[in-house]
């Protein structure tokens, strides 16, 4: 079964805004592929082109070996799409929504029940509740059920975990992994970098371009600089101070700590341990308290930040 996705030199612009710029990605059959990027990176546009809802300005794409423009009718039978916004009928109940979508695809809830059983079992207690009255996580599970009801070969999930609580997010990704194990190719987008680790491969996207396509492991390994997490109070003056400090390549705020990178040459010249010692003394002199400094392994978000720093086109 050839249910891979091939994207070749796809470009799309809205007026003067370039949403996608000559984007090329190859996704293997049965892969769980993540599009990682902030809002406005062009993820939704790419999804809409792939599910035949939008026409690209240039380039071509095939899904399951079918051209997204020419063979759109055949393709619509084989893909499941879950838009970023909750797009079910809010005034229909859970059960009615499922039956409606089953009818649209000329199938029934029973026919492909095996595929959605795991997910549907959690929804079953609420099956007479209106879809609009479900919690965020429940809505997404229902939407996933609806997208799966016709046993698609490829599943497109546009930001399925946005606005969902952390526990439900983990559950949701568990479900995706199970679906992947059944041979369904899944393309999923997310603005949450921590979810990237659960994909087979990811594409880091920004402003319509791919910064990097690789497995999460490789992307992390490709991070060449030394990464140091610095915590202290007050936080904001600390950030400014760190950015001024000699030898610091970049510094970003990451929740309760600042992540700073020092360039390879700096680290070799004086050793990371010495650098940390000197920094600690300096910060204490400056009057910061609760200081903790340690080296950490890079996360996807650090990689993204580092890639973003690089000049475009590399």
């Amino acid at each position: 079964m050839n249910n891979g996705i091939r994207i070749q030199q796809i470009s799309k612009s809205y007026g003067s805004v370039q949403a996608l710029e000559a984007l090329s990605i190859d996704i293997a059959p049965g892969e769980l592929f993540g599009l990682i990027g902030p809002d406005g990176a062009g993820k939704t546009t790419l999804f809409r082109i792939l599910v035949t809802l939008l026409l690209a300005d240039a380039g071509s794409a095939t899904v399951c070996g079918l051209d997204v423009v020419r063979d759109y009718k055949a393709l619509r039978q084989r893909i499941g799409y879950m838009p970023g916004r909750f797009s079910l009928y809010q005034d229909l109940t859970v059960e009615e929504n499922l039956n409606f979508f089953a009818t649209l695809f000329k199938t029934s809830l029973q026919e492909n029940y095996a595929l959605i059983r795991d997910i549907y079992e959690r929804l079953e207690p609420f099956k007479h509740r209106k879809a609009g009255k479900l919690s965020g996580g429940m809505k997404q599970k229902l939407a996933l059920c609806c997208a799966l009801i016709h046993k698609p070969d490829v599943l497109f999930l546009d930001e399925p975990t946005t606005g969902v609580d952390p526990v439900s997010r983990v559950e949701f990704w568990d479900m995706l992994e199970r679906l992947r194990n059944q041979g369904i190719t899944i393309l999923v987008s997310t603005p949450y970098m921590d979810e990237a680790a659960r994909c087979n491969r990811i594409a880091l996207m920004r402003e319509g371009r791919c910064l990097s396509i690789d497995t999460p492991e490789h992307i992390r390994q490709a991070f060449s600089d030394v990464l140091i997490a610095v915590h202290g109070t007050p936080m904001y003056p600390l950030l400014l101070e760190l950015r001024r400090y000699p030898g610091v390549h970049s510094c970003f705020s990451f929740g309760d700590a600042h992540h700073l990178t020092i360039s390879q040459s700096q680290a070799q010249a004086q050793g990371t341990a010495t650098f940390i010692e000197k920094l600690k003394i300096r910060l204490t002199e400056q009057g910061f308290s609760d200081i903790s400094i340690k080296t950490i392994p890079p996360g996807i978000e650090d990689c993204f930040m580092a890639l973003e720093e690089q000049p475009a086109g590399i």
Partner: peptide
């Protein structure tokens, strides 16, 4: 507006 058209269009209907 509600986005349901998006899902309807992607279906083979």
């Amino acid at each position: 507006e509600t986005g349901t058209m998006e899902v309807l269009l992607v279906s083979p209907v």
